[in-house]
Design a protein around this nucleic acid. Sequence first.
DNA 1: AGGTGTGAAGGTGTTCACAGCC
DNA 2: GGCTGTGAACACCTTCACACCT
Lengths: 241, 241
Amino acid sequence: MRALTALSERSVPTVSSEELAAAAGVNSAKLRKDFSYLGSYGTRGVGYDVEYLVYQISRELGLTQDWPVVIVGIGNLGAALANYGGFSARGFRVAALIDADPAMAGKPVAGMSVQHTDDLEKIIEENGVSIGVIATPAGAAQQVSERLIAAGVTSILNFAPTVLSVPEGVDVRKVDLSIELQILAFHEQRKAGEEAAAAAAGGSSVGGAAPAAAVVPPAGRSAAETRKGGPEGDVPAVMPA
Amino acid sequence: MRALTALSERSVPTVSSEELAAAAGVNSAKLRKDFSYLGSYGTRGVGYDVEYLVYQISRELGLTQDWPVVIVGIGNLGAALANYGGFSARGFRVAALIDADPAMAGKPVAGMSVQHTDDLEKIIEENGVSIGVIATPAGAAQQVSERLIAAGVTSILNFAPTVLSVPEGVDVRKVDLSIELQILAFHEQRKAGEEAAAAAAGGSSVGGAAPAAAVVPPAGRSAAETRKGGPEGDVPAVMPA
DNA sequence: AGGTGTGAAGGTGTTCACAGCC
DNA sequence: GGCTGTGAACACCTTCACACCT
């Protein structure tokens, strides 16, 4: 979608699956197959009409609708989200900012006036909100989610570091910022391990030029097979000590 | 890992793959197979020693190390990240907060003093930082990333709404907050579509009780097969108008 | 000639089911 | 008897390759 939008902005009229795939960094066959699930929107010998394709995909993804959302918990994170430009650009409209702190009520954040939690139900109903964003502290999250759901919200984006328990039919997506860092740290560790291994081995490996994006299981497979000793001071399968 | 930590806090000594799988919401066979890649850390007839398993997985994931990180761009989002408790809890230490605005320099955020971009290289080198977090506006992100990388950073968590281009060997993870909302909106749209379809069909479907977590391609497959008409006012494959 | 749409081949990831150990 | 560790079966996803359309 990003690649398509870029083409659209450059007023490119049509793309072949090959060109678009290259721009998006994927395989052209995959792209064609994916598009085929939406329908036959291409023209053989020509390619896909960019504008038409943008429209079809947008609609399929629900981006042609305008989704009102509320943000509950206007601390640093809530304020950051309220100011985040990406939302309005993608069809989301921040209908209200809600905080439990009476001192926050009435304060202007991102050009809106913060409202108090007391009015949560009213706000949701009046604006027909079905998506709520929780940016409260962990302790408040579960309770907030219950009130949101009771008022009619059926999708929740949860930034609080808690697992919410919600009734069936309600979607929750949890954003855990530290998990992203953990993933980076994991790869960082592997980089260090590979360097060390390479240095120790002294270059006896075959094509050891640039093992950039290694994947986990296969790498340690054979090592794991042999080392079945047990729980005493042994070495991790995927990374040499 | 979350499920394990919870057990550890409740001082549960051992778990079977079955119990842990239920707690984590996954299949027990998958869990055993995944663990087997790390080694044979379980005891047949008994299960896994919780503490030992926590340690092994932590080490494998690189969580036993202390990772210094810098946050560049101390606006709302940067401040929110600096205050985010989850980082220190998972072995990350915020080594410095950096902002380009001279007015920010010296200001206290999350108990630290914000430093100016001029000192970026010095800070990175002195603290041995290999992971950087970019929370600047889109326009500054690419340049910041280049300075970070030149100074020795090899992993970047990018919150700015831009695609960074970086040399090989550098990992970038992009967090796009609006994508999460888009995913919720997509499911939300499908919920609405299903309701409408159910209402229209009047209950003639077979087991139409609760099609909670539907997946995309299969659903619209047969419909897509028949509708090959072409680009005039037709209906999306996966969602009835 | 150029490029889509798609059956078929090829991979990868998941689950089953059971031998083997405690 | 209970539970792990793992080959084998299975399901799903990706890629190939080519018939068919413009």
